[in-house]
Simulated assay, not measured.
Amino acid sequence: MSTHLTLAAEPRYFKSSSLQSRLLGLGLRHTVRPILGMWARLPFDLYPPNLIDHVARLLPVHEGTSWRTVDLGPCQSEWLLAKDVRDVRGGNPGAILYFHGGAFLTCGLNTHRNLVSRISYAAGQPVLNVGYRQMPTEPITESVADGVVAFRWLLDQGYRPEHITIAGDSAGGYLAFSVARAVLDAGWGRPAGVVAVSPLLDVDSTSKRNHPNANRCETFPLNALERFTELALRMDSRRGISGQRVCPVKMPVADMPPSVIQVGSREILMPDAELMANRLVAAGVPCDLQIWENQVHVFQASASWVPEARQAIDEIALFVQSLAAGTVEAPAAKSTRKKKAARPRARAAGS
């Protein structure tokens, strides 16, 4: 049986028509998806070296971007500024804390430097790009702990919590919400907002299995998500923390900061985005759920050639700038949607 969550939140739909986005989806469906399907069927655990992150060193960044390594103790990170972006010492009070995706198993600073540089340029804010520890070496709880250390580093540099936006894609979306929750629980103040791109927000695959997108996603077959669930739970058990980790969809949310969630209309992670948006809006927290027609998982990373990706990054930038301007509106709910306040224009991400 397939189900689709009835939303209290009113999503915003973005039409897609570019040839580039269709080619991207077709390419992933015939390469990445079958490879992940084969990995999920292996009768043994296989954790290949993170070769993709090493190869990604060759990828270009947005023109004029600079970055330096930041040693956070448990992990390495990067302090990145796009062209003409100033930090707090230069009079810019805002910053973005970013967590890359990769199912807590792969990817890293190199794979996401291009995307992060474009977000920095469009939003006009520096970014701390976090190379958090991952499975199979460490469980998800340690990834969250690294994120909290990264937030503390920003505070130590002079940034105020209400000027820090926490963002991430895929597994990084899990960390974005989890770190925001941890910061609130620590009494450090409320972050400015949360940006979640194609977020994985529930390790349990049940809702994904019962969703219409279960077999429509061009990146992930269902069995790959179920294999990931098994690995994550086994890692928790090995560390003696079974049942202690709380996924974002089950966290208290009434005091969470405003958020924007972007997800492709065919993604297998759609139920996670729907449930999180529903809970936030029901709790009175501003949440802009954006559904991008036929876009693939983290299509924003293809901004160098996919026009919809550049548009999505501009939407992220508008949200970040709205947070800084204090113009984020109340939650949009069915039959109670308010007229949108004027928002500042973002710099074009493809410029």
Rank of each mutant, 00 (worst) to 15 (best):
T3N: 08
G326A: 11
R12H: 09
R68W: 12
T137D: 12
C107F: 14
G131Y: 02
M270I: 13
N92G: 07
R245N: 11
I316W: 04
I164Q: 01
T137C: 05
A330D: 15
L289D: 06
P331Y: 09
D45S: 12
C75T: 12
C247E: 15
S304Y: 00
F151D: 00
Q157S: 08
A9S: 13
S205P: 08
G172L: 04
S335A: 15
E267T: 08
H211Y: 12
C217P: 02
A332H: 15
L201C: 11
S205N: 08
R152H: 10
Q300F: 03
M235V: 01
V306I: 14
H112G: 01
E329Q: 15
A282P: 01
M1V: 10
P49D: 04
V203Q: 04
A82M: 01
T65S: 11
P199C: 09
H54D: 09
N50W: 09
G64Q: 06
R118A: 08
I268V: 15
I140S: 03
S117L: 05
L28F: 12
L318H: 10
A95K: 04
A167Y: 00
S351K: 14
R310N: 06
S207E: 15
V130H: 04
M235D: 05
P126Q: 08
T327I: 15
A180E: 03
H4S: 09
V85Y: 01
